[in-house]
Nucleic acid binder design. Structure first.
Lengths: 135, 135, 135, 135
DNA sequence: GTGGTCTAGACCACA
DNA sequence: GTGGTCTAGACCACC
């Protein structure tokens, strides 16, 4: 799995797990059907409280990123979301605004920002598995 | 001032204030030197506790967004930040990654995302005051 | 921890805490990673309101002196600061001036002052932990 | 008089006045017997509230830096303070400690600090009036 | 158990 | 009038 936690971060540990799992799923490093470590196992390897892992998995399941199967374990779900285009756009706008403000505060122009996003997107999908491109 | 609070949001009220003031300063709707409502005044209009407003103002001052003057009030600070380009870029990367993941999850491709960011940036600086463009 | 508060002082209680913790960290009496009393615990022992302690800890975290970990407690942060020499000097000048004036007012000559600072510095780092000298 | 106020500073305006007057007296720029501007006059030139000036003068008088003479004005007092040496030393210690902590935090060693204080003291008494050296 | 937020209301210092 | 501090006590999220 290869998760990196920063216990000093203001971000809650369970959220760090959620985010990193999401990222790995997004990049195709974790494919649909893939089994994740059990709560106890991950808690041991990360040296954190099992409750914290359970909380992360709960969140991920609620978001449809993983599926729990009683007695078998936790698996990466099939990622098939299709929202109407307009809704997709409007969902992202708050994030875009936050980004624009953050950029503005440190003197990055919108043009530079768009440029950098393009670059980053390419790096981001410098894919492990070709699946990541298909979407 | 026109702030909108969502008391049902998981985000703390004082943070909602911080974010919205920051946004308005970034867009140039609030210019440097502009006086903000007093702690008590904003508390009354938003129907929240003065301490909560004070907390928001404290954070904003601390970030250099506003300046408090004893007995006079709270004012928008001169916004002048210039970091080296490399640092500017690296500071933004985490935000960009989060955005890419969020987009990917709801089925927005990187290309669409870049496109949408461009659009949003234009709207964003559909300037109230020409100052907002200068930076 | 051994903190001494003076409730008659014009200096705010939370600032007294901030200052004393900083001092103890500087002297190496509190080492990096060291756990501080919880908010409630310190509030009880100092017989002050927990909010006041929380405020002090917030400032200290914000200054990078301590790190808070949700549900675990407050810990002394790794202290690693390195500013360019010129900036270091200029940052200190206001303090030096204030000191010179204070000394002058009570009839201490600059020479005596320099002497006394040297003595005090030695006492100051009469190290508990050798770490305090390394910096 | 040549006072410079920073209304954005967290330091109260009246304290800025107090400090600068003290400094000028210490440096010998203002000699004993010298008349200071009246409350109204200073308030006008600095464009601040007369109450603020009055407050500063009250503080200065209380400290024995100036003397008010009803109907005549405010004058620089004769600066003759002589405390026993031990008390002089102990009065300064808190200031010295604060300085040492501040220095330590930004990576200045005690030796460098002593050095810098010596330099600063020389500059400081690069005297206007020879009187400043006599003490 | 830990810290985080919010409220209510008091008192003080500053302009 | 302004903001600053402190208290008391509630409720929540995290580990």
């Amino acid at each position: 799995m290869n998760l990196k936690l920063d216990t000093t971060s203001p971000q809650a540990i369970y959220l760090q797990i959620v985010e990193q799992v999401r990222l790995q799923v997004a990049r195709g490093e974790l494919e649909a059907g893939c089994k994740l470590p059990s709560v106890r196992e991950m808690a041991l390897t990360l040296r954190i409280n099992p409750n914290t892992v359970a909380r992360a998995y709960r969140e991920l399941e609620h978001d449809g990123v993983v599926v729990k199967q009683q007695g078998r374990g936790v698996f990466v779900a099939d990622q098939t979301v299709t929202l109407p285009a307009t809704e997709r756009r409007s969902q992202l706008n708050p994030h875009l605004d936050a980004l624009l403000v953050a950029a503005w505060r440190i003197g990055v122009t919108p043009d530079e920002l768009v440029q950098q996003l393009g670059d980053r997107a390419q790096e981001f999908f410098a894919q492990k598995s070709p699946r990541a491109r298909k979407r």
